[in-house]
């Protein structure tokens, strides 16, 4: 059970606050990279960036979903329930937060919960680990939080991501929000962001 206890925040109050501010700034300023404080690695497929968002956002009031690879490692499941008490759900469509360790393990966006027209906030926030927040195909972003067009190039996004995202965006005010994490940073893509391929 060593891995279960280790890997949490050394100073939960202050670290949760600074992680939250990174997440808030990331969603308020889509496409920008924000430094994400991370705890020590727990030595599993659950990378520290996933751990720090998990610890900051989840508790027994939030259902969480881990992708199959993450779930297949008992240490990840134990870690999540020990430190957050969050109920684990088997279907992504029932999750308040979904943690995904790679694009290969990512279900299509429409498998998650987009919320309802009356309560669009009752939707899934997806935290997706990618190999890098740069070096991938160029995407251009527009929408709230951006003064001008913003250019990003995260690598390792799911195939047909732009097409899936367009469908998600058209659901507004319903829809899922996406947090991309890699290398101690986070990038936010709220449901309001319009994404086009190329510069």
């Amino acid at each position: 059970m060593e891995g279960v206890i280790d890997g949490a925040f050394a100073d939960p109050v202050m670290q949760s606050q600074s992680v939250f501010r990174a997440l808030m700034d990331a969603l308020a300023n889509p496409g920008t990279m924000r430094k994400l404080p991370v705890p020590r690695a727990i030595g599993t497929s659950m990378i520290p960036e996933l751990v720090s968002t998990l610890l900051t956002l989840s508790d027994h009031d939030t259902s969480i979903w881990l992708d199959e690879v993450l779930r297949s490692e008992p240490a990840n499941v134990q870690f999540a329930s020990f430190h957050t008490g969050a109920p684990m759900v088997a279907e992504p469509g029932r999750a308040a937060f979904a943690f995904v360790h790679s694009a290969e393990a990512m279900p299509p966006l429409d498998q998650f919960n987009p919320g309802t027209q009356d309560y669009p906030d009752r939707s899934t926030t997806i935290v997706l680990a990618v190999p890098s927040l740069s070096g991938g195909p160029a995407l251009s972003l527009r929408g709230p939080g951006m003064k001008d067009e913003v250019h990003i190039s995260p690598s390792g996004l799911p195939g047909d991501f732009v097409g899936q995202w367009e469908i998600n965006r058209a659901l507004f005010p319903r829809g899922v929000d996406l947090l991309l994490v890699a290398d101690g940073h986070v990038m936010g893509l709220p449901r309001t962001t319009r994404i086009a391929e190329g510069q």
Binding site: L23, D121, S123
Partner: peptide
């Protein structure tokens, strides 16, 4: 409250 703030930002 933080979770509510993140949703609020995503749904202006």
């Amino acid at each position: 409250i933080r979770r509510a703030i993140l949703k609020a930002i995503a749904i202006p």
